[in-house]
């Protein structure tokens, strides 16, 4: 639990931070809340030579409504997201997801940008970001670009970010009338990470499912949209039977990961159960 030596920088602006990333290349790691990076540094599984602490850059945190979107600064903590009144009204799914991340200490320090950039395959946010069709805004030496969540999570611990890019903001849509959302999670009893986490966004019309977006985390090597479930839901009046039938496809086309706590087969089963529960809860909220 004694990290190797590193050089520490605390840039005051995004521009300065990008300059440091350009200068130090692969030797540099960005530090935000530190809840993913510091534990692996203490175990010396990561030994970055340079730490770029972006925590003191102003303007990277905060939540604001922006037309049909809500913009969340990358350094906004899970706790702030959980408690934010704007999010609770316009996109409660994200607040509901933040509320079940780790424990209180983690939620007080960890940030949404850091979680997204780390891309842990069992992190909670990715399920919600995928289901919501969120956008990740990143800035690099060549300026700002917007990456759809569906393209952002590339592989386990790998994102579409370039080494010199920093996430500045995430944008989630304001939920429309008739749309409900829910996040259902089976936490690992040790780590608190999602063994299975399912975010469902369901739009109902005339008692039938008009559209559905299902984001799943914890099951496979990266978070994914359960498109087979989504297809099977459309046109259905959602009850225990129809939802279960559709949710049976939750792990279709992915390779469920197994560990000491839950085998791949059991994870796939849990994915179906939690998908069913998330869908039914989301549908019940679709008003």
């Amino acid at each position: 639990m004694i990290p190797a030596a590193f050089e520490y920088f605390s840039p005051q602006s995004v521009k300065e931070a990008i300059g440091l990333l350009e200068k130090h290349g692969d030797d540099a790691k960005i530090l935000a809340g530190g809840h993913s990076l510091l534990p692996i540094m203490k175990l010396r599984l990561a030994q970055p030579k340079v730490i770029v602490d972006i925590g003191r850059i102003s303007g990277l945190s905060g939540i604001k409504a922006d037309g049909q979107k809500v913009a969340i600064g990358a350094l906004t903590t899970h706790d702030a997201i959980e408690r934010d009144a704007v999010l609770k009204e316009k996109c409660p799914l994200l607040a509901e997801t933040a509320a079940v991340i780790g424990d209180m200490q983690v939620r007080n320090r960890g940030t949404i940008g850091g979680s997204a950039a780390h891309a842990d395959p069992a992190a909670d946010y990715p399920a919600a970001l995928l289901a919501l069709g969120a956008e990740i805004v990143a800035i690099g030496p060549k300026g700002t670009r917007t990456i759809p969540a569906g393209e952002f999570f590339v592989e386990m611990l790998t994102t579409a970010l370039k080494p010199t890019e920093i996430i500045t903001e995430l944008r989630v849509p304001v939920l429309a009338r008739g749309t409900g959302a829910a996040y259902q999670k089976h936490p690992h009893p040790a780590s608190g990470y999602a063994v299975v986490g399912v975010a469902a966004v369901v739009t109902m019309s005339g008692g039938k499912c008009q559209s559905a977006a299902i984001g799943v985390t914890g099951v496979a090597g990266k978070p994914y949209r359960a498109t087979a479930v989504e297809k099977a839901l459309i046109g259905q009046s959602l009850d225990e039977t129809t939802a279960a039938k559709a949710a049976a496809h939750a792990a279709e086309g992915v390779d469920p990961q197994g560990d000491l706590y839950a085998s791949g087969q059991f994870r796939a089963h849990l994915a179906s159960v939690y998908t069913k529960r998330a869908v039914l809860l989301a549908a019940s909220r679709a008003k």
Partner: peptide, 13 residues
Amino acid sequence: LITGTMADYAVPK
């Protein structure tokens, strides 16, 4: 030891 850290070994909360 597979359960080598508190992230793998479930100390109750």
